[in-house]
Nucleic acid binder design. Structure first.
Length: 492
RNA sequence: CGGGAUAUAGCUCAGCUUGGUAGAGCACCUGCUUUGGGAGCAGGGUGUCGUAGGUUCAAAUCCUACUAUCCCGACCA
């Protein structure tokens, strides 16, 4: 019983840390703010990456790879961009170590100072746009649709496993277009890719929206986002897609000749999701017994556990039956593990696979064999069923789909119950304190008001939902006129 | 970067007040018995007591500095 988790209701943060560590997703590392992603966590990320990668390619993008290091001067070319990232950049100043003449191991060789310092990329707009300058001359070179899978570094003061670490893995798409309209369409298209991924694969409902000026990406004209709601009532930005206008094209002088042979700057987008999605997945679905993973992303979808007894003949029959079942499931493309390891007993395995979030567990013992059934347990509801061995593969296939759907519906219900329409300041504060979740309220559109609300309540405007209903109202704080409601929440 | 806490076996922690040669549980290893919700018995190994100084005959224990981690703030995907 060494792996009991902190109760979700007692201490949500501690529960989150416990579950990430004990389910084997990740571990702390020797480096401040950086984590080790363990095989179970990395397998989850690989599945996310593979699905997204296919979606990117299906929408016409190609992968490429740009350097980890960015010359310091590049970063200062776009004013808003510098301001956004300067405070959290790791800087490389030297390129060589040497033995300490005083015997203290190695030291930085003071003679190996770089002429120009290098920044470890916090994001790659600058290095990429300095390159695009050479790639784009004519409208025939456009659109340029590139994505890269990479690691980035942002020197965060306070880190949390997956949600905010100094180094993280992500993908960043960077595209160049001939017209503003095309670029805006691309921005929206990729937001929709993220939304589809969140809903259909992560089983996580999200709200599509646009950020306010305060929350906008440094250097963007418009930042679109998908916002998810975690079980503790806090919001989490799960993906962003930016319309960059001509800001980077101007900063890096990326021009093209159009059909009329007129020179113009290209229009840009960038978009990204990160390993933060793993944290989102954990906080959206998991419970006090451990992870609950959606079948479409779970590293393993089905675990099969034999329950043997002393009888060698029965043991062999159980083993043969389950080996056969494993093969059949694999043939159907189901990710399955037959845990025939004799070192751990069934009870231990049940608990362990629940902790790891395995969607479906099949157990078979002598008793079941006699009745021609298997015990099938689903992780999302913890329901156990006796299912006939005849047609078991079909039952499991269907069950995996049911689980995927049920997880989404359950999260959707929770999310919808946690969007509160509020029309007075007192109510706003009360709902924030007592219920959490999204608050749909009127706002006068000014950054000052948004900032005040943030200081008073910690709540920020998560987004202005796309296709938002236009409705006359009064700002929740100032009483000034407003044309639409926006979504507030305390966020991760 | 400010406030708080912590640092001892792989993990969780006791020991520190009152200085005297390092402890428990879990995990691990061996064997046997077991196997339907984190097995039982027997035996066994495990330490630079976070790092560096200082006080002392003697430091896990007292003092100083440093480092790291966690929690709470400011900042952020």
């Amino acid at each position: 019983m060494s792996k009991t988790l902190t109760n979700r209701n007692e201490d949500y943060s501690q529960w989150y840390n416990d579950i990430v560590l004990k389910s084997g997703l990740a571990d702390y590392s020797a480096v401040r703010g950086c984590m080790v992603i363990k095989p179970h966590g990395y397998a989850l990320w690989e599945n996310m990456r593979d699905v997204l990668d296919k979606m990117f390619k299906d929408t016409g993008h190609q992968n490429a790879y740009f350097p980890l290091f960015i010359p310091k001067s590049f970063l200062s070319k776009e004013a808003a961009h510098v301001e956004g990232f300067a405070k959290e950049c790791a800087v490389v100043t030297h390129y060589r170590l040497k033995n300490d003449p005083n015997g203290g191991g190695v030291i930085v060789d003071p003679d190996a100072k770089l002429e120009e310092e290098l920044i470890v990329r916090p994001t790659s707009e600058t290095i990429i746009w300095s390159t695009y300058k050479n790639w784009v001359q004519s409208y025939r070179d456009l659109p340029l649709l590139i994505n890269q899978w990479a690691n980035v570094v942002r020197w965060e003061m306070r880190t949390r496993l997956f949600l905010r670490t100094a180094e993280f893995l992500w993908q960043e798409g960077h595209t160049a277009h001939a017209t503003k309209q095309e670029a805006v369409e691309e921005t929206e298209r990729m937001l929709e890719v993220y939304a589809t991924f969140a809903e259909e694969y992560m089983a996580m409902p999200i709200i599509r929206g646009v950020k306010t000026a305060n929350e906008r990406f440094a250097g963007a004209e418009d930042t679109y986002c998908i916002e998810a709601l975690m079980q503790d009532g806090k919001a989490l930005q799960a993906g962003t897609s930016h319309f960059l206008g001509q800001n980077f094209a101007k900063a890096f002088d990326v021009k093209f000749s159009d059909k009329e042979n007129k020179l113009d700057y290209v229009w840009a987008t960038s978009w990204g999701v990160s390993t933060r999605l793993v944290g989102a997945l954990v906080m959206a679905h998991s419970d006090d017994e451990g992870l609950v993973l959606p079948p479409r992303l779970a590293p393993l979808q089905v675990v099969i556990i034999p329950i043997y007894n002393k009888d060698e003949e029965v043991r062999k029959r159980i083993h043969d039956k389950l080996s056969g079942l494993t093969k059949e499931l694999k043939a159907k493309g189901i990710r399955v593990k037959f845990d025939d390891d004799d070192n751990n007993r069934p009870g231990w395995k049940f608990a362990e696979y629940e902790l790891k979030g395995m969607p479906v567990r099949v157990a078979l013992g002598a008793r079941d064999l006699e009745n021609n059934v298997a015990e099938v347990a689903r992780r999302d509801t913890k329901e156990k069923m006796q299912i006939s061995l005849d047609g078991l593969v079909g039952s499991i296939e269907k069950l995996l789909e049911d689980i995927q759907t049920n997880m989404y519906q359950r999260a959707l219900k929770f999310r919808d119950e946690h969007i509160s329409k509020v029309d007075s300041w007192d109510e706003f504060v009360k709902v924030l304190e007592e219920k959490g979740g999204f608050i749909s309220a009127h706002w006068d559109g000014s950054s000052e008001t948004e900032e005040k609300i943030k200081q008073m309540t910690k709540a920020t405007i998560r987004c202005i939902p796309l296709n938002n209903v236009q409705e006359e109202g009064k700002c929740i704080l100032t009483g000034n006129p407003s044309k639409e409601r926006v979504l507030f929440a305390v966020a991760y």
